[in-house]
């Protein structure tokens, strides 16, 4: 089973402070820690589990700067066989469609049965690249996959809907699935393992290698234009109770009792 996994290097912003950069269209990256996008990590694990079950190979592909090699080496350390990085200054400012186009160019000539990627990137949150890629490759797809079973050339997927509901679909391979977190338990890649993976080659492709023109990528090739980033206006502010734990908890109980909540 030949599997391609699309991964992305993203900053971890859940706990960290996010500051908008001076240009107003990006964020300050200096103090942020970068790692593989969480959902992509689950997609990678799913691919590795399928490889363990069916044999074959796993290829990790990313669109990103040279630093994205950290993520690719981690994928290789965990068991991916090949890694491809698409890097070019001219890719900067690409919207979701263009990103999918870049991946399409790199992947279309590969031999694959399955493409897996995370359902959403935690930085831009587009939730778009995977499905667009499937369309460009002319293969069927499904999203928010929580369970994936393969029998022959057919995949049976459980897709997460809203409110705890799931739908079961049958999809013919080759297909692309966007993977939801929680589908499996990702393994660990040790530092030694990642160092050993440095011996494996990472294929780097640029704009010319992909056979695209400058006007087809980056800001000029994008149909969606990012005008500006801004901190969301605060609609409501909670009344913050101040003081030591003993004090705030007493105050809270007082408030809840007086409001008839408890």
């Amino acid at each position: 089973m030949e599997i391609v996994v699309c991964v992305k290097r993203v900053p971890e912003t859940a706990e960290a402070e996010v500051v908008i950069a001076e240009d107003g269209r990006s964020i300050e990256e200096r103090d942020l820690v970068f790692d593989i996008n969480e959902a992509d990590n689950y997609a990678l694990e799913e691919a590795l589990l399928l490889k363990e079950k069916f044999g074959g190979s796993v290829t990790a592909v990313t669109v990103g700067p040279e630093k994205a090699d950290d993520v690719l080496r981690m994928c290789l350390a965990k068991g991916a066989d090949k890694a491809i990085r698409l890097t070019d200054e001219r890719f900067k400012g690409s919207d979701a469609y263009v990103t999918a186009l870049l991946l399409y160019r790199a992947i279309r000539d590969l031999d694959f049965d399955l493409i897996l990627t995370g359902c959403m990137a935690s930085d831009d949150g587009y939730t778009q690249v995977g499905v667009t890629l499937a369309e460009l490759l002319d293969i069927p797809h499904a999203v928010y996959v929580k369970k994936l079973e393969i029998e022959g050339q057919v995949a049976k997927v459980h897709c997460e809907l809203e409110g705890g509901l799931e739908e079961v679909m049958e999809v013919k391979l080759p297909a692309l699935f966007t993977i939801q977190t929680g589908i499996n338990e990702p393994r660990y890649a040790s530092l030694l393992g990642i160092r050993k993976a440095m011996r494996k080659e990472i294929e780097v492709l640029n704009l010319d290698d992909l056979g695209l023109g400058e006007e087809e990528v980056g800001e000029s090739g994008s149909k969606i234009e990012l005008r500006r980033l801004f901190i969301p206006p605060v609609e409501k502010e909670a009344e913050i109770l101040e003081g030591k734990p003993e004090e705030v908890s007493a105050r809270l109980v007082e408030i809840l009792k007086s409001e008839g909540v408890i």
Binding site: K78, E185, P186, R187, Y188, A189, S190, L192, G193
Partner: peptide
């Protein structure tokens, strides 16, 4: 650890 198969809490700590 080298085989990658460790408990999630240990993995997260590392």
């Amino acid at each position: 650890v080298e085989g990658g198969r460790i408990q999630p809490t240990i993995r997260d700590v590392l």
